[in-house]
């Protein structure tokens, strides 16, 4: 799976705020027009973004292969007809173009997440959203990232324990109930301990914010991101 890789590419050196806005702008632009020329254009654009992050398109395709396989089914499903001629090309092509729009979005999001550590996105969220909501979401993101591996290990342990005691033989409903209850109990115990620890460390609404620096090279990226976001308003 794709995840952050340390590096010094152009994409790595950009401020996460400009990258985030670019990414959202690009996603809006890419899905705006399901036409072939537009698709070619956005794909070319996305490949440039990958180049800026020194990321191979093949690596991205491989990591999203399950998503892509499911998407690739859509044109077939769209083309199937209940009577003769059994398969119609027009709806299949229409669906293929729709699905095709998604590919450049996946490429750009891959470029983002391999060039941006999660803590930078968290810092961007905390700085872009003012006041208490920004603090809750910023610190909250850091905590979820920190706790996800622990909770995942809990859930897997619970599952294995149910298996080990012959849970396979029990009805699905019972297995799922046990799994959900035991996982939830452990999760809530962790929540109790975490809340005491946060309070002991003076968890506050107004902490020193994580450092981020907007650089000159961020402005063009930001401008392109905004231009992309409004591009659907311009008729092609």
């Amino acid at each position: 799976m794709l995840s952050y890789r340390p590096g010094s590419t152009v994409a790595h050196r950009l401020d996460p705020r400009s990258k985030l806005l670019f990414q959202f702008g690009f996603a809006i632009a890419a899905v705006a027009h399901p036409t072939l020329p537009w698709l070619v254009g956005t794909t070319a654009f996305a490949l440039c973004a990958l180049a800026a992050a020194r990321l191979s398109p093949l690596a991205v395709l491989r990591s999203y292969r399950i998503v892509l396989a499911v998407l690739a089914l859509a044109p077939f499903v769209a083309g199937v007809a209940p009577g003769p001629p059994w398969f119609r090309v027009d709806p299949a092509l229409r669906s293929a173009l729709h699905v095709g729009r998604i590919l450049p979005v996946l490429l750009v999001s891959a470029a983002y997440l391999t060039s941006t550590p999660v803590r930078d996105t968290r810092a961007a969220v905390q700085r872009l959203i003012p006041g208490k909501p920004g603090q809750i979401l910023g610190i909250g993101m850091a905590l979820v990232v920190r706790l996800f591996p622990l909770v995942l290990a809990d859930v897997r342990e619970v599952r294995d324990a149910i298996h080990a005691r012959g849970g396979e033989a029990r009805p699905l409903r019972d297995r799922v109930r046990l799994l959900a209850v035991r996982s939830l109990e452990r999760t809530l115990d962790r929540s109790d301990r975490l809340s005491v620890a946060l309070r002991a460390r003076c968890f506050a609404w107004n902490p020193t914010l994580p450092p981020l620096a907007f650089d000159r090279r961020d402005y063009p990226v930001l401008a392109v991101g905004i231009a992309l976001a409004v591009s659907p308003l311009v008729s092609v």
Binding site: V118, I139, R146, R193, L194, A197, L198, P207
Partner: peptide, 28 residues
Amino acid sequence: FQHPRDQFVAATVAADVAFGPENLGLDR
């Protein structure tokens, strides 16, 4: 507290240790 794993707020060491001083609003 007991169970140190549940009292960390960040994935890396320095970022976690900084949490308390950040809440006090100290400068970087």
